[in-house]
Measured scan of single mutants.
Amino acid sequence: MFYPNSPQTSPQLTQIPYGQQYAMMQRQIQQPYHPFATTEPQARLYPYHYQGPIQQEQGGFITQQSTAASPQYVQMRVTPVDQSIMSGYPNQTANGSSSSSFNYNIHPQQQQQQQQQQQQLRHHAMPVGSVPLQDDRYRKQLIVNYLAPDVTSTDLHELFSRFGELDGARIIYDKQTNMSKGYGFVYFCHAEDAKEAVERMSGYEFHGKWLKVGYSTNPLNIVPSNSSPYVHAGSRGAAG
Protein backbone atom coordinates (compact mmCIF):
# COMPACT_ATOMS: atom_id res chain seq x y z
CA MET A 1 0.00 0.00 0.00
CA PHE A 2 1.31 3.40 -0.95
CA TYR A 3 0.45 6.55 0.98
CA PRO A 4 0.43 10.03 -0.55
CA ASN A 5 3.30 11.16 1.66
CA SER A 6 5.20 7.87 1.81
CA PRO A 7 8.92 7.75 0.88
CA GLN A 8 8.07 5.67 -2.22
CA THR A 9 5.91 8.40 -3.77
CA SER A 10 7.38 11.54 -2.23
CA PRO A 11 10.30 13.25 -4.00
CA GLN A 12 13.52 14.02 -2.32
CA LEU A 13 13.60 17.03 -0.03
CA THR A 14 16.39 18.53 -2.05
CA GLN A 15 14.17 18.67 -5.15
CA ILE A 16 11.35 20.58 -3.40
CA PRO A 17 11.53 24.38 -3.21
CA TYR A 18 12.13 25.89 0.18
CA GLY A 19 8.89 26.53 2.05
CA GLN A 20 6.96 23.61 0.55
CA GLN A 21 8.86 20.73 2.11
CA TYR A 22 6.16 20.07 4.71
CA ALA A 23 3.12 20.76 2.49
CA MET A 24 2.94 17.57 0.50
CA MET A 25 -0.77 16.71 0.90
CA GLN A 26 -3.50 18.48 -1.06
CA ARG A 27 -5.34 19.63 2.06
CA GLN A 28 -2.08 21.13 3.31
CA ILE A 29 -1.24 22.85 0.04
CA GLN A 30 -4.69 24.50 -0.19
CA GLN A 31 -4.66 27.73 1.70
CA PRO A 32 -7.58 28.41 4.10
CA TYR A 33 -10.02 31.18 3.25
CA HIS A 34 -9.68 34.32 5.33
CA PRO A 35 -12.51 36.82 4.67
CA PHE A 36 -10.60 39.69 6.30
CA ALA A 37 -7.28 38.98 4.56
CA THR A 38 -7.68 41.54 1.77
CA THR A 39 -6.31 44.93 0.92
CA GLU A 40 -9.65 46.53 -0.02
CA PRO A 41 -11.19 48.63 2.80
CA GLN A 42 -14.78 47.84 1.73
CA ALA A 43 -14.21 44.14 2.24
CA ARG A 44 -12.81 44.70 5.72
CA LEU A 45 -15.81 46.77 6.75
CA TYR A 46 -18.48 44.66 5.05
CA PRO A 47 -17.10 41.11 4.67
CA TYR A 48 -20.51 39.51 3.98
CA HIS A 49 -21.96 42.12 1.63
CA TYR A 50 -18.90 43.11 -0.38
CA GLN A 51 -18.44 41.19 -3.62
CA GLY A 52 -15.76 43.09 -5.45
CA PRO A 53 -15.54 46.43 -7.24
CA ILE A 54 -18.42 47.68 -9.37
CA GLN A 55 -17.77 48.05 -13.08
CA GLN A 56 -19.69 50.04 -15.68
CA GLU A 57 -20.63 48.03 -18.74
CA GLN A 58 -21.85 49.19 -22.10
CA GLY A 59 -25.58 49.84 -22.23
CA GLY A 60 -25.91 51.79 -18.99
CA PHE A 61 -26.37 48.85 -16.58
CA ILE A 62 -24.28 48.44 -13.45
CA THR A 63 -23.13 44.92 -12.66
CA GLN A 64 -20.82 43.40 -10.11
CA GLN A 65 -17.71 41.44 -10.86
CA SER A 66 -18.17 38.60 -8.38
CA THR A 67 -20.61 35.72 -8.27
CA ALA A 68 -24.14 35.63 -6.86
CA ALA A 69 -24.70 36.69 -3.28
CA SER A 70 -25.51 34.42 -0.38
CA PRO A 71 -29.20 33.58 0.09
CA GLN A 72 -29.06 35.26 3.48
CA TYR A 73 -28.28 38.65 1.96
CA VAL A 74 -30.12 40.32 -0.90
CA GLN A 75 -28.11 42.50 -3.28
CA MET A 76 -29.97 45.32 -5.06
CA ARG A 77 -29.13 46.00 -8.68
CA VAL A 78 -29.06 49.73 -9.36
CA THR A 79 -29.61 51.29 -12.76
CA PRO A 80 -28.88 54.90 -13.64
CA VAL A 81 -31.79 57.33 -13.75
CA ASP A 82 -32.82 58.60 -17.13
CA GLN A 83 -32.55 62.39 -17.03
CA SER A 84 -35.26 62.75 -19.67
CA ILE A 85 -37.84 61.73 -17.06
CA MET A 86 -37.06 64.83 -14.99
CA SER A 87 -37.35 67.20 -17.95
CA GLY A 88 -41.07 67.82 -17.40
CA TYR A 89 -40.74 69.26 -13.90
CA PRO A 90 -40.87 73.05 -13.47
CA ASN A 91 -37.98 75.19 -12.21
CA GLN A 92 -35.44 72.63 -13.40
CA THR A 93 -31.88 73.78 -13.84
CA ALA A 94 -29.41 72.78 -16.52
CA ASN A 95 -27.70 70.13 -14.38
CA GLY A 96 -30.93 68.20 -13.90
CA SER A 97 -31.73 69.37 -10.37
CA SER A 98 -34.92 71.20 -9.49
CA SER A 99 -35.68 73.75 -6.81
CA SER A 100 -38.07 73.14 -3.93
CA SER A 101 -40.60 75.80 -4.98
CA PHE A 102 -42.90 75.14 -7.95
CA ASN A 103 -44.30 77.83 -10.16
CA TYR A 104 -47.28 76.67 -12.19
CA ASN A 105 -47.91 80.13 -13.68
CA ILE A 106 -51.23 80.53 -11.84
CA HIS A 107 -53.07 83.79 -12.19
CA PRO A 108 -52.88 85.92 -9.02
CA GLN A 109 -56.68 86.02 -8.67
CA GLN A 110 -56.94 82.25 -8.94
CA GLN A 111 -54.19 81.83 -6.39
CA GLN A 112 -55.98 84.18 -4.00
CA GLN A 113 -59.23 82.26 -4.43
CA GLN A 114 -57.47 79.00 -3.67
CA GLN A 115 -55.98 80.47 -0.51
CA GLN A 116 -59.40 81.69 0.62
CA GLN A 117 -60.91 78.26 0.00
CA GLN A 118 -58.15 76.61 2.02
CA GLN A 119 -58.73 79.03 4.88
CA GLN A 120 -62.45 78.27 4.83
CA LEU A 121 -61.76 74.55 4.91
CA ARG A 122 -59.44 74.98 7.88
CA HIS A 123 -62.07 77.11 9.58
CA HIS A 124 -64.84 74.54 9.14
CA ALA A 125 -62.70 71.44 9.60
CA MET A 126 -62.69 70.59 13.28
CA PRO A 127 -60.95 67.56 14.82
CA VAL A 128 -62.78 65.23 17.13
CA GLY A 129 -62.92 66.53 20.68
CA SER A 130 -62.03 70.14 19.82
CA VAL A 131 -64.26 73.08 20.71
CA PRO A 132 -64.95 75.90 18.23
CA LEU A 133 -64.71 79.45 19.47
CA GLN A 134 -67.42 81.07 17.37
CA ASP A 135 -70.34 79.32 19.10
CA ASP A 136 -70.56 79.12 22.88
CA ARG A 137 -73.08 76.30 22.71
CA TYR A 138 -70.37 73.86 21.72
CA ARG A 139 -68.74 74.44 25.09
CA LYS A 140 -71.90 73.46 26.95
CA GLN A 141 -72.75 70.09 25.45
CA LEU A 142 -70.89 66.94 26.40
CA ILE A 143 -70.89 63.41 25.08
CA VAL A 144 -70.57 60.55 27.55
CA ASN A 145 -69.25 57.25 26.17
CA TYR A 146 -69.04 53.72 27.59
CA LEU A 147 -72.31 53.83 29.49
CA ALA A 148 -73.73 50.66 30.96
CA PRO A 149 -76.88 49.25 29.30
CA ASP A 150 -78.98 49.82 32.43
CA VAL A 151 -78.16 53.55 32.72
CA THR A 152 -81.17 55.78 31.98
CA SER A 153 -81.45 59.46 31.13
CA THR A 154 -82.51 60.17 34.72
CA ASP A 155 -79.35 58.52 36.05
CA LEU A 156 -77.24 60.54 33.63
CA HIS A 157 -78.94 63.77 34.69
CA GLU A 158 -78.44 63.06 38.38
CA LEU A 159 -74.79 62.17 37.79
CA PHE A 160 -73.88 65.45 36.08
CA SER A 161 -76.26 67.82 37.85
CA ARG A 162 -73.87 68.12 40.79
CA PHE A 163 -71.53 70.22 38.61
CA GLY A 164 -74.15 72.83 37.74
CA GLU A 165 -77.51 73.52 36.17
CA LEU A 166 -78.39 71.37 33.17
CA ASP A 167 -80.48 72.02 30.10
CA GLY A 168 -80.98 68.31 29.58
CA ALA A 169 -79.48 64.83 29.50
CA ARG A 170 -80.45 61.89 27.35
CA ILE A 171 -79.34 58.40 26.42
CA ILE A 172 -79.29 57.38 22.76
CA TYR A 173 -81.29 54.21 22.06
CA ASP A 174 -81.59 51.99 19.04
CA LYS A 175 -84.96 52.49 17.34
CA GLN A 176 -85.28 48.86 16.30
CA THR A 177 -84.13 47.05 19.42
CA ASN A 178 -84.95 49.84 21.91
CA MET A 179 -81.60 49.15 23.58
CA SER A 180 -79.03 51.68 24.72
CA LYS A 181 -76.18 52.36 22.31
CA GLY A 182 -73.79 52.99 25.19
CA TYR A 183 -73.48 56.77 24.95
CA GLY A 184 -75.47 59.89 25.75
CA PHE A 185 -75.40 63.69 25.79
CA VAL A 186 -75.41 66.18 28.64
CA TYR A 187 -76.33 69.85 28.12
CA PHE A 188 -75.11 72.43 30.63
CA CYS A 189 -76.35 75.99 31.11
CA HIS A 190 -72.84 77.35 31.72
CA ALA A 191 -69.60 76.53 29.93
CA GLU A 192 -67.60 76.60 33.17
CA ASP A 193 -69.69 73.78 34.63
CA ALA A 194 -69.23 71.71 31.49
CA LYS A 195 -65.47 72.19 31.63
CA GLU A 196 -65.36 71.03 35.23
CA ALA A 197 -67.45 67.97 34.37
CA VAL A 198 -65.06 67.02 31.57
CA GLU A 199 -62.04 67.29 33.85
CA ARG A 200 -63.54 65.33 36.74
CA MET A 201 -65.76 62.73 35.05
CA SER A 202 -63.33 61.36 32.48
CA GLY A 203 -62.35 57.94 33.81
CA TYR A 204 -65.09 57.90 36.45
CA GLU A 205 -66.55 54.46 37.22
CA PHE A 206 -70.32 54.33 36.88
CA HIS A 207 -72.34 51.09 36.92
CA GLY A 208 -69.20 49.05 36.37
CA LYS A 209 -68.03 51.10 33.37
CA TRP A 210 -65.24 53.64 33.03
CA LEU A 211 -66.75 56.75 31.46
CA LYS A 212 -65.14 58.80 28.72
CA VAL A 213 -66.41 62.39 28.68
CA GLY A 214 -65.65 65.03 26.07
CA TYR A 215 -67.14 67.93 24.14
CA SER A 216 -69.73 67.04 21.51
CA THR A 217 -69.07 68.92 18.26
CA ASN A 218 -72.07 67.57 16.36
CA PRO A 219 -74.36 70.56 15.59
CA LEU A 220 -77.41 68.27 15.42
CA ASN A 221 -77.15 67.65 19.15
CA ILE A 222 -77.07 71.32 20.16
CA VAL A 223 -79.94 72.37 22.41
CA PRO A 224 -81.31 75.83 21.49
CA SER A 225 -81.18 78.33 24.33
CA ASN A 226 -84.88 79.18 23.99
CA SER A 227 -86.05 75.55 23.90
CA SER A 228 -87.66 73.76 26.78
CA PRO A 229 -85.50 71.33 28.78
CA TYR A 230 -85.53 67.66 27.94
CA VAL A 231 -87.89 65.40 29.80
CA HIS A 232 -85.75 63.25 32.06
CA ALA A 233 -88.02 60.25 32.13
CA GLY A 234 -86.82 56.86 33.17
CA SER A 235 -88.61 55.09 30.33
CA ARG A 236 -86.63 54.44 27.19
CA GLY A 237 -89.37 55.58 24.87
CA ALA A 238 -89.50 59.05 26.36
CA ALA A 239 -85.73 59.40 26.63
CA GLY A 240 -84.81 58.21 23.16
Rank of each mutant, 00 (worst) to 15 (best):
R44E: 08
M76E: 02
Y187E: 00
K212W: 00
G96V: 07
A43C: 15
N91H: 10
Y89D: 02
H190R: 10
M86L: 09
P41D: 06
P4K: 04
I62C: 14
L45T: 04
M76C: 10
I16K: 04
M86N: 01
Q28P: 12
R122H: 04
A23E: 09
D193P: 10
Q83K: 12
A169L: 01
M179E: 06
H207C: 06
A43W: 15
R236A: 05
E57Q: 14
Y173D: 01
S97Y: 15
A194R: 00
N221D: 04
T79K: 06
F185R: 00
N226H: 06
A238C: 13
K212F: 00
Y138A: 03
G208H: 12
Y173Q: 05
R200H: 12
N226T: 08
R122L: 13
Q176F: 13
G184C: 08
V74I: 12
R137A: 08
T152R: 06
V186T: 01
Q134P: 11
R77I: 15
S216A: 00
K140S: 04
S235Y: 07
C189F: 06
I29L: 11
S130N: 11
R236V: 02
Y183I: 00
P127Q: 05
Q12R: 05
L133N: 13
Q55I: 14
Q64W: 15
L156W: 02
P224S: 12
G19Q: 11
K140D: 00
A23F: 15
Q65Y: 11
T39N: 03
Q21I: 08
V78N: 08
P7T: 11
P47N: 10
T14P: 07
A191G: 05
F61K: 04
F163M: 03
P32V: 12
H34K: 03
V128G: 10
P229Y: 14
V231D: 04
I172A: 00
Q26E: 12
G129V: 06
P149S: 08
V74K: 01
Q116M: 14
H124Q: 12
E192Y: 09
S161Q: 06
R139S: 05
K209C: 00
K175M: 04
N145C: 06
G52R: 09
N105P: 07
R122A: 08
S225G: 07
G164W: 03
G182L: 08
Q92T: 12
Q30M: 02
G60N: 12
G19A: 10
G208R: 06
A148W: 02
R137K: 05
Q12W: 13
G184T: 03
H124G: 06
T63I: 15
N5K: 08
N5L: 12
P219E: 00
S70D: 07
E165N: 12
I29C: 15
S228Y: 15
N95W: 08
L45Q: 07
F102T: 11
A43L: 14
L159V: 04
